[in-house]
Simulated scan of single mutants.
Amino acid sequence: MSKLKIFLADDQSLVRSGFRMLIDAEDDMQVVGEATNGMGALSALSNEPADVVLMDIRMPEMDGVEATRRIVEAGLPTKVLVLTTFDLDEYVFAALKAGASGFMLKDARPDDLLSAIRSVADGEAVVAPSATRRLLEQVVSKLPEDPGKTDERLEVLTDREREVLVEIAKGATNSEIASTLFMAEGTVKTHVGRLLSKLDARDRVGLVLIAFETGLVD
């Protein structure tokens, strides 16, 4: 089995060293490159894309938000997992909007970070639970002023799809959604795929943002 290729973008050498030691100790992944800023990461990944890049937010020359945006706009196959020291600073929401597949805190448990890397590489999206509150604070200001008005984006969804979207917004996994809504996990995956298509969302993070922006979840 080929190993997942992981790229590190962080301006602190000690942080990169710690992540490299953790990742290279795993049988299914390895660090294939490093950069001290977004410009270096973009240049390296353009020449040889990795499966996942661990992207710091605050870096010199080009920050993680701009680097994420350019990676997505360039159509590179590399998934972006944003890392931040804070629960949610002002740049993380922008990074998610730019196309990041999720974000984790730098003080996350090693097992949680490794699990997040694997999930992102597998096409899932990851949002650190402890950062959810501040993410919602960012979204609340963008919610419709009239809570009784249905956003037109939701009109294309069936009642069941709305129920699944609500659970996704709560951070539930497919297996948890299956248990809560009494359906097979395969059926949940089908609903998730339809939601991504109907709402033109890149991944589950996009679905979460839409759920809050449309007022489906408050």
Rank of each mutant, 00 (worst) to 15 (best):
K142S: 12
K142Q: 15
K142T: 13
K142A: 14
K142G: 06
K142I: 12
K142E: 15
K142Y: 13
L143R: 15
L143N: 08
L143K: 15
L143V: 13
L143H: 09
P144I: 08
E145M: 13
E145V: 13
E145I: 11
E145G: 06
E145W: 07
D146A: 09
D146E: 11
D146K: 11
P147A: 04
P147Y: 08
P147M: 05
P147L: 08
G148T: 06
G148F: 11
G148C: 04
K149G: 07
K149V: 06
K149Q: 15
T150F: 05
T150M: 12
T150L: 13
D151H: 14
D151P: 05
D151Q: 08
E152I: 12
E152T: 15
E152G: 04
E152A: 14
R153F: 04
R153L: 10
R153A: 09
L154S: 08
L154C: 09
L154Q: 05
L154A: 06
E155C: 03
E155S: 15
E155N: 12
E155H: 12
E155Q: 14
E155R: 13
E155T: 14
E155V: 13
V156E: 12
L157T: 05
L157W: 09
L157N: 03
T158K: 10
T158C: 09
T158E: 11
D159A: 15
D159R: 14
D159T: 14
D159M: 10
D159K: 14
D159Q: 14
R160W: 06
E161R: 07
R162E: 14
R162V: 11
R162L: 15
R162I: 09
E163K: 14
E163D: 15
E163A: 13
V164E: 01
V164Y: 00
V164C: 08
V164G: 01
L165Y: 03
L165S: 00
L165I: 03
V166G: 02
V166D: 05
V166Y: 03
E167Y: 02
I168N: 00
I168K: 00
I168P: 00
I168L: 10
I168A: 04
K170N: 07
K170D: 03
K170H: 10
K170C: 02
G171H: 05
G171A: 03
G171I: 04
G171T: 07
A172K: 14
A172L: 03
A172N: 10
A172C: 06
A172H: 11
A172E: 07
A172V: 01
T173E: 08
T173L: 08
T173D: 04
T173K: 09
T173V: 05
N174L: 03
N174G: 01
N174W: 00
N174A: 13
N174V: 11
N174R: 04
N174I: 06
N174P: 04
E176A: 12
E176N: 06
E176D: 11
E176P: 05
I177F: 04
I177Q: 01
I177H: 00
A178S: 10
A178M: 01
